Amino acid sequence: MKRLLLLFFLIICLNSCDKDDVQKTPIERLPPLTSLGANTAGCLVNGEAFLPKGNLPATLFCQYIDQKHFSIAINEKINNKIRTVNVASLNETLELNKIYQLKEYGENSKFAEFVIFNENFDDIQYQTNSVIKGELKITNHNYAKAIISGTFWFDAVNDKGEKVEIREGRFDMEY
């Protein structure tokens, strides 16, 4: 009887697994490209799906202050490690379907970064710069409903010259 119950329990557990998610490619795990204010975002980090995850105050954050200062942050916390993808545009009103170059951080710049925060405060920061770049494109902006959607990609380097590749970035956010 114990074996029968164990077999029954295993069958239920296996059937409750999301088989579709296991079979999905990394890009298929990303949220769809939408423009509804779905409050979704994701990208590929070195070919692996990167999505908001974990016990954090904000796993996903978007702001567009005074229609001039835009930023989107996707945060993932696994165990005691937090990884963050951040894309920002400072001091410029973003236009629809215009491609903006992500370069170095500055007062009137567009830039991106990937940061790994470790529990021992040995953080690793990868940033775009004048040579290692990326792109940001706003595909939808509904001012009345405060919804902004778009795509991004970038390469970034740390102070040791190691590079990280962020691809297929997408967001559909209320701000």
Rank of each mutant, 00 (worst) to 15 (best):
D122V: 10
T128V: 14
E95G: 00
K24I: 01
H141Y: 12
E95P: 06
A146F: 10
L90Y: 08
V85S: 01
L94R: 09
F70C: 10
F154T: 14
N140Q: 13
T40A: 11
F152Q: 05
Q63A: 01
L102E: 00
L30S: 06
A58D: 03
N120F: 05
C13Y: 08
A49Q: 08
A41Y: 02
F61W: 13
N39L: 04
I138S: 06
L4N: 07
Q125T: 09
D66F: 02
S109N: 04
F154V: 11
F114Q: 06
H69W: 04
Y100E: 14
K81W: 11
E48V: 15
F121W: 11
M1P: 12
E162L: 12
Y100C: 15
L60I: 04
A144Y: 08
N140H: 15
K133E: 15
Y64Q: 03
D123M: 00
L5V: 10
K68E: 09
H69L: 07
L5D: 14
N97R: 11
C43T: 06
T34A: 01
V131M: 14
Q67E: 12
L102R: 09
N86S: 10
I65E: 09
V85Q: 09
A49M: 03
L5S: 10
N120P: 09
E119A: 03
M1C: 10
E95N: 06
L94H: 05
N79W: 07
A156C: 05
E162H: 13
G106F: 08
E107G: 12
N129S: 15
F114M: 03
V87A: 02
E174L: 13
N120W: 06
A49D: 07
N75K: 13
S149K: 07
V87Q: 02
S71V: 06
E174A: 03
I27N: 03
I11W: 00
K98V: 00
Y64A: 10
A58K: 03
I11T: 07
Q23N: 04
L30A: 14
F171D: 04
F171L: 04
Y175T: 12
Q67V: 01
E168V: 02
Q23A: 06
T40N: 13
K68D: 10
I116C: 01
W153Q: 14
N79Q: 04
R170P: 08
L60W: 07
N158V: 10
N140K: 10
E28R: 01
R83Q: 15
G150I: 05
K53V: 01
E165N: 15
K163F: 08
R167H: 01
I72S: 09
C17I: 06
K98C: 02
C13P: 03
K81M: 11
R167V: 04
E107S: 15
D172F: 06
D172Q: 01
I99V: 14
A73M: 01
L136H: 02
